[in-house]
Amino acid sequence: MKDTRIKELLKELCAADGVSGAEESICELIKEKASRYGKTEIDDFGNVVCTVDGFDERKKTLMLCAHIDEIGLIINYITDDGFLKASACGGIDLRVLPASRVTVLAGDKRIKGVITSVPPHLQAAPEKCAPLDELYIDIGFDGQKAKQLVSLGDRALIENELIGIGRLVSSKALDDRFGAAAVLTCLETLKGKETAYNVKAVFSSKEETGSAGAKTAAFREKADIAIAVDVTFGRSHGESERETGAVGGGPMIGVSPILSRPLSNALINIAEEENIPYGIEVMGSRTGTDADHISVARGGCITAAVSLPIRYMHTPAETADIEDLKNTAALTARFAERGEL
């Protein structure tokens, strides 16, 4: 795929709504995109599963998994003055909330609002971030109208569309639409090619609230080998090399006691041989991705984690390099073709 087409795809994926547990819009969009590569269904749990054309009983099955839900807010109370109280839906970075514009997804209506910020003269400790229970969403309506328009359980999100900044892109929901776009780009690369495995792409729901989607999809799809394609910490100003990967430095191949070392090594070998830039991300135990759950599905699944470095994770300012997406797609596609495991 050409760079401009990849950027367009990513922009479209990032723009779709899909706060955890309310993934309908992004599910439909992913289904439409993935249907080009094979039979694609949305399961009861909100996962989108594409069985790539050319399924052969004799081959092992490789599952590529990227989650399509995004962090956001969930409305749990409406004051008599019409302000909305929200809880975090996923691990949203609370530092970004005050004075941010939000969209409340209320049925078929998109209601615009602003998150309150307490004026400095009323704050005791000026460097302390306001806790979530001091913040409200101001939708500019009185209590009666607000209660008519908004229902408890409605989701809200900060709707930053994808823009270019310098050589990078910035958008909401790059975690993990960036991974989902990489998987779709991988399927595009594999189109019409012979692969060593049957390929299934799982676009999982509810990762940010505990990987419920990947857990159930891994059980259903019975994969032999799985690669979870998610995001990891891309180095931003002041962050250490030890803890982060270089944005633009290629996919980070995970090494961890809970991942398959032979599979991680196979991916590293392919990256070396094919001249695909990569990094290694060593973790002492859990990876914090769907891989943690896929690896122990059914009787166990050989699992790797391939992560794309992004900056400012869990904020609406997530920032990434499209080159990393292309290299992740290339790495996973070459593995599916060569099948060195």
Partner: peptide, 24 residues
């Protein structure tokens, strides 16, 4: 405290940028 994660424009050329901090 309202700055983290906001989008900005820099200079007369309106260069787009984001205000970032270390990952949470």
């Amino acid at each position: 405290r309202i700055l983290c994660g906001k989008r900005v424009f820099v200079g007369d050329g309106r260069i787009p940028g984001v205000i970032g901090a270390k990952a949470l």
